[in-house]
Design a protein around this nucleic acid. Structure first.
Length: 216
DNA sequence: CAGTTGCT
DNA sequence: GAGC
């Protein structure tokens, strides 16, 4: 089901509802894309991208950093949110205003007018990197949605059900697309398939994903 | 305690 | 995809 919010001859984005509780805002982040990538680079100078280890002892193929009051981390001890970057001992970099404004606007467009994110996880995927099906379940507040912003190379996103064995739907995501999910499907399994090689004018050979949550 | 954002 |  596709709901076009704008006339097709107008600039802007198209809104889709691929499943109940899931809203896809195509190209929603396009007009601020350059500033978003610059802000990612600024965050990464303060808290560098790193490949975290899972409790099971595997090194994740996506490199991650965070900004905001809280950042998501994993190590052998488990998953959790922290106020400080364990790699620097310092607080996570402040969430850039342009990040927050984008996330709040996207949540509002998707039907979540009260979104107040305190955490932004930044994932960097290079060719070969992927993210298996998982739940976002380390947050305190499941009434607030997840807002996920794609920048750079395209990827196939998977959105599944409440159980890992539920067959996920596949949604190709491109530069500037924003996907929002909340309510009943807030804890549904999701992930991305292996990133394929490519070149993007803004990001080169990688895809960035910004994921906003209310974690605390 | 169970998990499993990874792997067999 | 079951199972760790």
């Amino acid at each position: 089901m596709t709901l076009d919010l704008f006339d097709s001859d107008q600039p802007g984005y198209a809104q889709e509802a691929p499943a109940e509780g899931v809203v896809l805002l195509r190209r929603f982040a396009l007009e601020s894309d350059q500033s978003l990538v610059t802000a990612i680079e600024s965050v990464a100078r303060q808290s560098a991208f790193r490949h975290m280890e899972t409790p099971g002892g595997h090194v994740m193929s996506a490199a991650m950093t965070c900004c905001g009051e809280l950042g998501w981390v994993t190590d052998r001890r488990g998953y959790r949110y922290t106020q400080n970057d364990p790699q620097t001992g310092e607080p996570w970099p402040e969430m850039p205003r342009i990040f927050r404004e984008l996330a709040v606007r996207a949540a509002e467009a998707a039907g979540f007018p009260e979104f107040n994110p305190d955490a932004c996880l930044i994932n960097r995927y290079r060719p070969g990197a992927k993210m298996g099906l998982h739940q976002d379940r380390d947050e305190q507040d499941f009434s607030q949605p997840i807002v996920s912003v794609s920048l750079g190379l395209p990827v196939v996103f998977q959105f599944g059900g409440a159980r890992r064995s539920d067959r996920p739907m596949r949604l190709p995501l491109s530069h500037g697309d924003v996907i929002v999910w909340g309510g009943k499907v807030r804890r549904h399994y999701h992930g991305v398939l292996t990133l394929r090689r490519g070149a993007h004018p803004l990001t080169g050979d990688c895809r960035y994903n910004l994921t906003f949550r209310k974690a605390g």
